[in-house]
Simulated assay, not measured.
Amino acid sequence: MDCLPRELVPEILSRLPIPSLVQSKSVCRAWRIFIHDQEFVDKHFKRMIDNDPSFILQIIGNPIQNQLYFGDFSGHPNGGNVMITKKLTIPPLSNFHLVSSCNGLLCLRFTHPSFGLCIYNPFTRDYIELPKIITKNPASHHGSVLGFGLDPTTKKYKVVEVSYKGITCRTLPRRVAISSMRRPPLTAAYASSSIESEVYILTVGSPTWRNLGRFPFHFMWQKSQVLVHDKLHWIYYPDTINATDLIMSFDLANEQFNEVPRPDFISSDRRFRELVLRGCLSAVSSDNEGLEIWVMKEYDVRESWIKEFSIGTYVPRILQPNDQCESSNNSRFYLPKRSIRVLCQLRSGGILLEYRNKALVIYDPHCRIFHDLQVTFAGISTYFRIVVHVASLNWIETT
């Protein structure tokens, strides 16, 4: 490396795969220091982003639930029709489930009884267990949603947890004072909510969580987080009948909530099920005819929402009845609309879809055809969780 021009070294090494770079850290101290340099880590990460996205998969169900796989399309000659997977080393933790991914780092949540959190880089194998939230009455909480992302001002990672507990309408104040929160005025509909949420935030590396307060909104649980413009996003609604789905953002820098304009052009009988990310904030709605994907071309501008894709109904082969003589009108040929999830758009333009945590399908919007995706790891006949992931050399600074 000393024989090469100084500016050429990062250009060469930034093109190497993550496993090769991790191994090269053992060559000598100089290599280790170089590969840990944040400028090089960022350069390599930007190259990874330019490729097709990769994925982290977790098998659902015992006895192999505590296993993660890394999957991408780069290692097979058929390209986008086959996902090659590699078994990953996991941290020495109790049972966990996969929550989200950010900048090559995974957020894992331990299952009962600890319910703790861990941040883990599956390639460098660096991990940190996070402190637990201390509440006055932990038994009162009935569920939560999580968010994980990087504060662009401090370059520190933060984890946000929104916890819920049931309350009566009489105990909910007309106005809720929340530190550092910008939100729409509370209407009568909001004030009649029977759900109260409490927001906690942790700067990774800090010893304790901070309580940001309570508010009368309910965030819809999502299978994957949406991080756009350094803000986390959730679908939320007041706990009232026939309430309209809305979008709330949380700024990781100033720790403020703010409502984001929704795509009003979506008909009233189509509710949001999830948000997806493709460089722009996107929203997915569905009915019995299929899916619509709306994209906000200019962030926080209501008029910039456009309906970019319409995807018809389809049932992957693995989910079809075994008896080929059965009528296509059989209800088993139709999937509940909540069982289909949009994962991402590939460089080819295809849309990657997940069906009922069991099948992956690529939809070609130009030809309007579906391709069942072959995933090459043992256990795909069982159910799995999957998150979009960009592998990186990032690690957590704890000081």
Rank of each mutant, 00 (worst) to 15 (best):
V176L: 10
S224K: 15
D37T: 00
H389N: 01
E298W: 07
V284K: 10
K46R: 13
L16Q: 10
R278E: 15
N95R: 10
W294R: 01
F219H: 08
F272E: 01
F250S: 03
Y314I: 02
K165R: 13
E39D: 12
I18G: 00
N357Y: 12
E397L: 13
C344W: 08
R271W: 14
V228Q: 06
I59R: 06
L106V: 01
G166D: 12
V27D: 00
G143H: 11
L346S: 09
C367H: 13
V82S: 04
I195E: 10
L8T: 10
F115Q: 08
L68M: 06
I386S: 02
P19V: 01
D300K: 13
A243W: 02
A378H: 15
K132P: 10
R262Y: 14
N329C: 15
N95Y: 08
K136T: 12
I293L: 09
N330L: 14
R385C: 08
I134D: 10
W305E: 09
K337I: 12
I195R: 12
C325Q: 15
F110Y: 12
M248Q: 10
K358R: 14
F217L: 12
Y355C: 06
I49Q: 05
M48Q: 09
A189L: 12
R368Q: 15
S310D: 07
D300I: 08
V375E: 05
N254C: 11
S194W: 06
R109E: 14
D300E: 15
I49F: 00
G71N: 05
I293D: 06
Y236Q: 02
T244A: 13
L353N: 09
S328N: 13
C102D: 00
P5L: 05
P152W: 03
R15C: 11
P263R: 03
N121V: 00
G166K: 11
R385G: 08
G349T: 03
I362Y: 13
K46N: 11
P92G: 02
I134Y: 06
V145Y: 02
L150K: 00
C107A: 04
Q38C: 00
I56M: 05
Y237C: 07
L343S: 11
V9W: 02
Q67R: 11
D239W: 11
G79V: 05
A243S: 09
Q225P: 07
M83F: 06
L277S: 14
T398L: 02
L108D: 09
Y314Q: 03
S286F: 08
L352C: 13
E11V: 02
D287F: 03
G149T: 02
G205N: 03
G349D: 05
R385V: 04
I167S: 03
M1E: 01
I235S: 08
T376E: 15
I12V: 14
F215S: 13
K297A: 08
S101H: 01
S24W: 02
K46V: 06
Q345W: 02
N357Q: 13
P138H: 07
R341V: 06
P365H: 14
P185F: 05
P5V: 07
E298S: 14
S140I: 08
